[in-house]
């Protein structure tokens, strides 16, 4: 016993080092598995508050380009609104129910990140605005990611530029779908994997969300096909998708809540 205590006292620095090092390795491994980073995330009072204060100043720097984006979106929405009046009348039941399934909340990005391999963003809306885990986040141009852990006033967004993120996506012209992942190389290009060989893919095709995951509605823009090839087994396409979003310049986003998600999950689990 005496010897054990002596050993601990003699090597206390090394043991402390070993302890702290393994604690941090555990945190690292947790952060590499999707949605597991519960302790170490920036959605808390202190870091969220500091980022928010700083963002209050720095958001002035790109006010012009952000206004431009919002004006473009207004323009697009106005043209949709005025051109689709007749169409709305004929299918009004559908459009009303569509509006009830998905609830949109606008939010601001207060911490952007795109240079790491696992990027996590921070937005200034949280549990107080009824934002929970697994809500979709989009911008005016395309999808951005899925919410992760939340605090009262802030929420983490697991970006599509994260090697652990997987989102169901499909070709706009046909319903062939695959899963959208990122290989960590370029912040403009993401990869669409597992698309059936039979799908008629062409360079320049638009890729949209498939609506299969109950997180995103169908037909939200993602990007266009830059190039594609068959995988090693020659059964599926691997498609490089150029994003519509400029991931390096983000400010205004929308959080989408699917109100029927419980019902869908219950139904899936009951089978």
């Amino acid at each position: 016993m005496q010897q054990i205590i002596n050993f601990i006292i003699r090597n206390k620095t090394f043991l402390l080092f070993l302890l702290l090092f393994s604690v941090s390795i555990v945190f690292t491994i947790q952060s590499h598995s999707y949605h597991k980073s519960k302790f170490i995330n920036s959605a808390n009072f202190l870091t969220g508050g500091i980022y928010n204060t700083f963002n209050n100043f720095s958001s002035y720097l790109n006010l012009k380009s952000q206004n431009q984006l919002l004006a473009e979106e207004n323009n697009r929405l106005k043209s949709l609104l005025f051109n689709s009046e007749t169409a709305l009348d004929s299918v009004f039941i559908d459009s009303v129910s569509f509006g009830k399934i998905y609830k949109f909340t606008s939010a601001n990005i207060i911490k952007n990140s795109y240079s790491l391999t696992d990027n996590v963003l921070l937005i200034n809306k949280g549990a107080n605005d009824s934002i929970k885990e697994d809500f979709g986040v989009i911008t005016s141009k395309g999808i951005l990611g899925i919410t992760g852990s939340t605090s009262k006033n802030y929420a983490n967004v697991i970006s599509i530029l994260n090697t652990t993120s997987q989102i169901s996506a499909q070709l706009k012209k046909t319903n062939h779908y695959g899963s959208l992942t990122w290989n960590g190389d370029s912040p403009n290009i993401v990869q669409l994997l597992d698309v059936e060989k039979i799908a008629p893919v062409l360079v320049g095709d638009t890729i949209v969300t498939s609506g299969r995951s109950s997180i995103f509605p169908k037909n939200i823009n993602i990007g266009i096909v830059q190039d594609f090839e068959l995988d090693a087994a020659e059964n599926f396409y691997e498609i490089n998708v150029r994003l519509f979003n400029d991931m390096t310049n983000l400010e205004h986003v929308y959080v989408i809540e699917n109100k029927d998600v419980k019902e869908i999950i219950n139904l899936l689990n009951s089978n």
Binding site: F17, L20, V23, F27, T28, S31, I40, S42, S113, V120
Partner: peptide
């Protein structure tokens, strides 16, 4: 905590400190 990076900075800092 700030950079949402798990424990990578903690691990490398502890290592160089040791």
């Amino acid at each position: 905590l700030f950079l949402d990076s798990g424990g990578i900075h903690a691990a490398s800092s502890v290592f160089i400190a040791y």
